[in-house]
Structure formats: C-alpha cells, structure tokens
Write a protein that binds this DNA or RNA. Structure first.
Lengths: 189, 189
DNA sequence: TAAGTTGCCTAAAGGTCTTAGGCAAACGAA
DNA sequence: TTCGTTTGCCTAAGACCTTTAGGCAACTTA
C-alpha cells in the first residue's frame, strides 16, 4: 500500500505532539499508527516496542529542555540566570505538558546515561557559580533547586494552585526571590 | 462458586498493596481479580471502572498521609514541626512508593473536594504559624513548601539523587535546614 | 416458605501490544 | 539490464485488559 515514510524520528516527534494533546500516559502505538494512516504492526519495524517509543519521547523532551535552558543561560549570572533557568522549565511544562511528563519518564540506566540529564545538572551547577557555595553545599543546593523547580511546576500543572488566590504566577515570582535570597545566605549548621 | 467477600474497601486496600509492589500504573482490575481468585467481571459490582479503583486508592493514600502528618505535627512547632512534617512525606513515599504515586493521581473535582487535600494544606499552614508570615506571603510559603517536599521526594524516588555523593539523606537534612532559615528570614521585595 | 437481594459467574465485544510471515517496490551489483 | 537483496508496509493471529449483559444459586426477610 501507500509509502508512508515512517521513521523512528518522525514517530518520536509525532508521539511528542500526541503526548501534548492527550497526555503522555495516553500515548499509544495504536493511536500513532492511526495518525500516520498505517497499520499498527508497521510501526514495529521502527520501534522496538511501546516502551521504546516512550523512551524516545522522553529523550527528545530532555534534549529540547536542555537546549532551551542553555540558550536562556547564555550571558546571564546570579539571580538573572536563576530566573531565566526556572522560567525555561515552567514555560516548557506549560507549553508542552505531555513532553514535560515524558521528561519524568523513568529511563533505564542505559538510556539515562545517553540522555541530556547530565547537561541539566551541569547547567544547574553553572547557576550556582553566581553564588558563594562550595562542595558539598553546592550539590545540596543543586538538588534543592531541582526539587523546587520540578515540584512547583508539577503541582501547578496538576492544578494544585489554581482556584485560589493569589495567582500562581505571583507565587512563582516570590519563589524565585526566596531561592535567590536563600542561595545568597546559605545556612551552615 | 466460593464466596470471596469482595468489597470496595477490601479491593481498595489490596489495590494499594498491589501499587506498592508493582507500581501504581500497573494496578489493574484483572490483576486484582487474580489476587482474590475471582473472575474479573465480579469486581465490577463493587467498582465503577478502572479509574474508580485508582481514585479510591488515591483517596486512601491521601488519608493515610494526612493521618500520619497530623500525628507527627501534634505538640510540635517551628523547625521541629517542619522537619517532622517533611519526614512524614519522605518516609511514606519510601515505604509506600505506589501509594505515594497514587496520591499524585489527578482526581476529578468531585473526588478532589472529598479528599484529604484540604487537611494537607491546613497542616502546612499550621507549620507556618511558628514563623512570622502574613498573607499573601503565607500562601506563597505554603506553595513553596509543597513544591520542595513533593519535588525532593519525587526526584529521590525516581533515583535522581542516587549513584552520586553526598548521600541524599544528607541533602534532605540540609534542605530542611535551608527551608527553616528561609522561613525565618523571608524576603520581602 | 415465597420473594427479593446479593455475590459471583459465563459470555462476548472492543481495544492495545507484539510477533511471524508475506508481497511488492526500490536498490545495487554484475 | 536483470537478478538478488533490502526496505516498507501488510495480513494474520495470540495474549491481555476493560467493560457490559444476563444468569444462577445462596442468603435475607417478612
């Protein structure tokens, strides 16, 4: 029948769009086949299985996120960098909720090692260069930043902050203020 | 055939255990039926559908978590309360990863209103009474605490902090120190 | 004890995942 | 140019999960 031009690449990109539309959990090999107007079995020449598809989408999302973060960080330092970095995460999650969920997909060690995960922690460390932290506090701070960003964005996306004043954007802004203050005045026990 | 004594309650509890064993996503009506040595269709007298089961597990987890938190908070204030509260979340997630994942299940508005969600935010507010914050900063701080706790626990559970020094328990302890310091010295822009 | 309710069952339809094997078109080499 | 190989999608089929419909036997209740 018709040549559809299937490719792991194209399937991954279409899968990412599908995730943003219907949610990452609802991404299905069958639905993807439907969108390419092709029989389901045809996809298995390009994808190992359903998990393989999800892994590829996750890796795509991590790359996109890292690319955006790298661009946002260029030429910035201190609170400016902190804010830009945080906004990249938050904006990406709001623009691409399915992809953001994909970025949280539990990768197997092999895929994780090949992912952009390393870039993310490197960039977080780079932000801390604008503050006066040495190891091991730097690592603790990296983990704290990751926790706050991921936690806030997740909860906001899940609707945890809606339907109540003040606006969640306001809380976000004050959260960044708070983090900046905390990093400038990091407590040593 | 044999009387199995099925009940929405019993199914929910068994579902929660199943979640802890195989992960919340893998909780399935079929597997549950298998565990009760009963035909799948029989469960549909007690559960509306698969989503209903997951909703019930989520509500159970939220209640358990709120109960633990309430007990931990009794008679504590300030950093002591903050630490106890945070540890409840972290310990619960480590002991019951499936239930913790269930607690993040996106409830429909009706179920959400009937959930223990309200108790959670009330308790978080109660912790802040030990610090000197007024509205709207109090709400911002509630959201920040929720973000940090949820974010840290999620990332830790996902293995984000493993395989690298220092120990994640150390980072957790320093995170609580940092939050305490931040709340005692909340920045006003 | 008759009537109604409860609790689990069989049957069946529809959806997803995955593997096996086939055919035709495109490609590459002699 | 032609013949063999590869590529790309297909049909077929098995396995599992979800959900609805209808049945039967045992227990409850008046």
């Amino acid at each position: 029948m018709a040549y559809a031009g299937l490719t792991a690449e194209r399937l991954t990109r279409a899968g990412a769009e599908l995730a943003d539309e219907v949610g990452f959990d609802q991404v299905t090999v069958s639905e993807l086949a439907r969108r390419f107007d092709v029989k389901v079995a045809s996809l298995y020449s390009h994808l190992k299985n359903s998990r393989d598809l999800k892994t590829r989408i996750a890796l795509l999302a991590l790359e996109e996120l890292a690319d955006r973060a790298a661009e946002a960080l260029a030429g910035r330092a201190g609170k400016d960098a902190l804010t830009a970095f945080g906004n990249v995460y938050r904006d990406y999650a709001r623009e691409h909720p399915g992809r953001y969920a994909a970025a949280q997909f539990r990768l197997d060690p092999e895929a994780a090692a090949a992912s952009a995960g390393g870039r993310h922690s490197q960039m977080t460390r780079a932000i801390l260069r604008g503050y006066d932290l040495t190891e091991p506090d730097q690592t603790h701070a990296v983990r704290l930043l990751g926790s706050v960003f991921h936690g806030f964005v997740s909860l906001e996306l899940a609707g945890g902050f809606s339907h109540s004043a003040p606006d969640s954007a306001e809380s976000w802004s004050r959260t960044l203020d708070a983090l900046d203050a905390l990093l400038r005045n990091w407590p040593t026990p």
